[in-house]
């Protein structure tokens, strides 16, 4: 049981699934807001993948909240610190994309990429 299904495998499957779902939404959907949702999902998947690389089974969070906690029984803090900033940047990017989409809607009156001439592909 442990050989086939470990925590790392589960998390890898989950993050891979989220990234592929997000990319699928970006490639196939025609609504612009839904495409931004797809980018958001893919980014969440990348974050899960990054944090799961630092995870060590059975270890505690990297916080010395009480005495007696061993360094060797803590998870890696570096990926967590990177993901912490990455989440905030992701929100900024989504907000910028949505602001552009609102402006585009005011100019063209539609959100469908197949109806906007510059965005057809």
């Amino acid at each position: 049981m442990n050989g086939v299904l470990s925590i790392s495998t589960v998390l890898n499957f989950g993050s891979a699934g989220l990234i592929v779902l997000g990319l699928y939404i970006v490639f196939t959907q025609k609504n612009l807001i839904k495409m931004v949702i797809g980018i958001d999902l893919a980014e969440t998947g990348v974050n899960v993948l990054l944090v799961s690389t630092g995870y060590i089974k059975g270890n505690t969070a990297p916080i010395f909240s009480k005495t007696g906690l061993q360094v060797s029984s803590m998870v890696d803090p570096v990926p967590q610190a990177l993901v912490l900033t990455s989440i905030v940047i992701g929100f900024g990017v989504s907000a910028l994309a949505l602001a552009m989409i609102i402006k585009l809607y005011e100019k063209t009156g539609t959100l469908d990429t197949s109806k906007i001439r510059g965005l057809k592909w």
Binding site: P62, I63, F64, S65, M74, P77, V78, Q80, A81, L84, T85
Partner: peptide
């Protein structure tokens, strides 16, 4: 800092 993530960030 007690929180290692904070000291990294």
């Amino acid at each position: 800092s007690a929180n290692a993530v904070t000291s990294v960030v």
